[in-house]
Design a protein around this nucleic acid. Structure first.
Ligand code: ZN
Ligand code: ZN
Ligand code: ZN
Ligand code: ZN
Lengths: 130, 130
DNA sequence: AGTGGTTTTGACAATCATTCTCACTCGGGC
DNA sequence: GCCCGAGTGAGAATGATTGTCAAAACCACT
């Protein structure tokens, strides 16, 4: 077994930090632009690589906008879902134990295993006009 | 009030029919290739246009694969969700009244309006190997 | 400080689904 | 037959994401 080195580079910290300080879901392109303009030189490929790693480790949540862009957000640990404002991007984390149970039951009833699910709610928040 | 012209062209029928006869979610590219090779000349742009229209009218369901491809399927009318096999693509339509109620409640509690939600379950079906 | 081996980076090219363009075709009403 | 707008489609354009690969950064160890 080879020990996987785990170097924490300046670039990786920068991406993680940028995510941690942001409240809303952000695209890779946006992050890249923001980091650069805030005097933080980084390559686009590196941003994508880092985000993939973070997502794979479960340190950030990913979801895809309607126009196919992946957006990332630093989230609390543990399984949860999102309530997102389509206008301003405000995001609320929500949990639904009964939904989890329902999904498991449905899966079992149909003989599916290794199940995973995605559930997002999108609407307009109280602070945004119609 | 302007009368909306609604010409039903050969190409549109072909797409609708191809979807109606297929059981699983299919990509636009796939549909295009299939239609062509079955002696049904059609342009790729037309396939995309037609699918957009069908989806907009609620005649087909759309969801996005993990690699960002949109896939389409002719579905029963009414609001429902999907249980999809990640290996063979087998799809089961499922309903969850309690989930709908939960989503509405959560939305209301947080002051969100015009809410919509997406919920898909993905797993491996009983007929597919590990 | 130097050396060698490994990991990470980043500018740039490549991929690829989807959308755009726009000249052309079709078909029904006149 | 002629007209005209809806519909089509080949090819170009878009744009996010991924691949490439040489150069840079890092880490022992000397
Ligand atoms: Zn869940
Ligand atoms: Zn809002
Ligand atoms: Zn299966
Ligand atoms: Zn629902």
């Amino acid at each position: 077994m080879v020990q996987t080195p785990k170097r924490l580079t300046r670039q990786q910290s920068a991406v993680a930090e940028a995510l941690r300080s942001g409240e809303d879901f952000t695209s890779a392109q946006d992050l890249h632009a923001r980091l650069r303009s805030s005097g933080n030189p980084i390559g686009l490929a590196t941003v994508y690589r880092t985000l993939q790693t973070l997502a794979g480790d479960g340190d950030v949540d990913v979801l895809r906008t309607d126009d196919g862009e992946s957006v990332y957000r630093h989230c609390s640990t543990g399984h949860h879902h999102h309530l997102v404002c389509r206008a301003c991007g405000k995001t609320v984390e929500v949990e639904g134990p009964m939904v989890e149970k329902w999904a498991d039951k449905i899966s079992a009833q149909n003989g599916f295993r290794d199940v995973r699910h995605t559930l997002e709610i999108i609407g307009t928040c109280s602070e945004c006009p119609a």
